[in-house]
Design a protein around this nucleic acid. Structure first.
Lengths: 340, 340
DNA sequence: CTGAAAGCGCTAACAA
DNA sequence: TTGTTAGCGCTTTCAG
């Protein structure tokens, strides 16, 4: 049991506890002589300050909280990696909260500030409600959103509307006219990128003079398996799309599987574009819309650290760019070589 | 600022702080009448106990620490997911420590117990040294190893020797005689699975009367890219292997890429087996040795929670099984159809 | 520059 | 049953 306290050190060094505390935090001047005595005592006793006490006394927890939904989602994991990279070495500890169920969501956002167990909060891929924000603001807890949006909170986002536009536009530029969109559920109030990308998709279509066809949009639980099922349906429509834009790379893989099952060659018979550029996309040669997953986490965490030191007058927004990464799952629409 | 304290509640309810504390922790009997008064006051004031104070006073941090190396490694992430699943809802917070550099390693293991910021510790995929264990034991910090080994610490492991044996044996059973092993660095003292699987590999070879050929074993940084490079070399040997056992699925993907670049068909010209059964393995149709990644994390965390409540007399070991998952990257060795 | 002492908010032992 | 009080280990005035 490492129960050597500041008092033991003080006694051993023959000084007061205040002095020990001073050398510990090296504020205020301490004479070099006593400083050495204290240091020696600390060394001899192998003393380490008790964090809980320090926290209580300082009113700072020296920890930042990170709320992530569905920790199994690769893009969330990647963002978290970015967060971890900057937390490590910042002197703060990282307390992780995973939200798997909607009920948990409300609990967390409501309780975390109250429990005063973190000095700052990062909310990843989860849009807080107005009430949540209200609580956060009242608790005066510095908060930064990553891949989420709210006008009153600082945030690091990607322009999902534009990303959706880019993806669709890429397909359009290749000559496709019948373009499907396979997505996560649209009605999830906490996940706006789904709607944003749809908006970009529709915008590109409109711009190209193509009417939105609801058969070409399917939504379902975010998973490869479910995406596969949706694609299976869509590709067996009487007049199936010649290209599919998937909300995420994970879902794009499901579409890829469906295409293979149906004997559709990719990209000759079917073009597929994903979103995220997760690691798997590279070795699957998936064309996709890249967004700075890791970066969003790292930048968000940096922003939080900054704002914890120096509370900003108003919320900052950092917008990260998206860009098409061309690989081998999209190709020019060419009716002459198609087998479907 | 939520600075309403237990004293405010006591005053408002017209009772002593002790009583409030009692209803908070509902130990000791409190009359229903006063209990209601206190509850009402708590409600009215929107009071939540201050965690730091509670921790200090109780001497418990209500948090468990998890040390993971290379948080970017998919198998580590998967184990962590298992951990998260059981921590969430246990009432404990999860404090995450990522170790990217070897120097950090010593620091963490040494400082975490001293800092007294967690009540229990999970060490994932990292073998502690004897000194580390000594410190942990002295600090009296309940610790469980996941995918790591030390006789004095409780642990959840997989039998890597047997796993390596199984993989090699599978290839042998298919008729292969020249079998490569592409692995992480062998000399990393903190990562024993590499050596264990090699041992299983050699054991299977010996059993089949095949001499170990050092050309058929290459080691390098654990990454897809590096594995690709090593495979490129190995496959261009004058007498190249007809099958490759990769230390991990991540590395197996690199081998897959190398094979493709060299025009070797998989599995007709080259059989490849990985290890881990990460998610990507499934959609790449990679034959692999499955181990309970998620399970190891979940079980390890359960074990820790148990041992925190009830310190065991001696260390427990839970051994998780491995099994071959047959997919499409391994096939019978058949010289007649080979193109190489 | 340094020691003493007063909290930080809570729990738990001790009286009542 | 309940109120009072003494810590938990540290930081931070406030004198000196």
């Amino acid at each position: 049991m490492s129960s050597v306290t500041i008092r033991d050190v003080a006694k051993k060094a023959g000084v007061g506890v205040g002095t020990v505390s001073r050398v510990l935090n090296d504020r205020n001047a301490v004479s070099e002589a006593t400083r050495q005595k204290v240091l020696a005592a600390i060394d001899a006793l192998e003393y380490t300050p008790n964090l809980a006490a320090r926290r209580l006394s300082r009113g700072k927890m020296m920890a930042i909280g990170v709320i992530v939904p569905y920790f199994t989602n690769p893009s969330v994991v990647r963002r978290l990696q970015g967060v971890v990279s900057v937390v490590t070495g910042s002197g703060y500890d990282l307390v992780l909260f995973d939200i798997e169920k909607v009920e948990q969501r409300a609990d967390f956002v409501r309780n975390i500030p109250r429990r005063q167990l973190v000095d700052g909060l990062l909310i990843v891929s989860l849009n807080p409600t107005d009430e949540d924000v209200e609580e956060l603001l009242q608790a005066n807890l510095p908060t930064v959103l990553v891949d989420a949006n709210h006008p009153e909170l600082s945030r690091v986002r990607v322009d999902n509307v534009f990303g959706g536009y880019q993806a669709t536009r890429h397909l359009l530029d290749l000559g496709h006219r019948r373009i499907g969109y396979i997505s996560d559920f649209l009605n999830d109030p906490f996940n706006s990128p789904v709607r944003d990308r749809l908006q970009g998709y529709q915008q590109a279509l409109t711009e190209a003079g193509i009417a939105f066809c609801s058969d070409y949009h399917q939504q379902g639980v975010h998973s490869r398996q479910q995406a596969r099922l949706m694609a299976l349906d869509m590709l067996q429509l009487p007049d199936p799309p010649t290209a599919v834009f998937a909300y995420s790379d994970t879902q794009a893989v499901g579409v890829l599987e469906a295409a293979r099952e149906l004997g559709r060659r990719v990209p000759q018979d079917l073009s597929i574009i994903g979103f995220d550029n997760i690691e798997a996309a590279e070795y699957l040669h998936l064309t996709t819309v890249q967004q700075g997953l890791y970066d969003s986490g790292a930048k968000g965490c940096q922003l939080l650290l900054t704002e914890m030191l120096d509370p900003p007058a108003s919320a900052t927004e950092i917008l990260l760019p998206t860009r098409i990464v061309m690989r081998q799952t999209t190709a020019v629409y060419d009716n002459t070589t198609r087998q479907v």
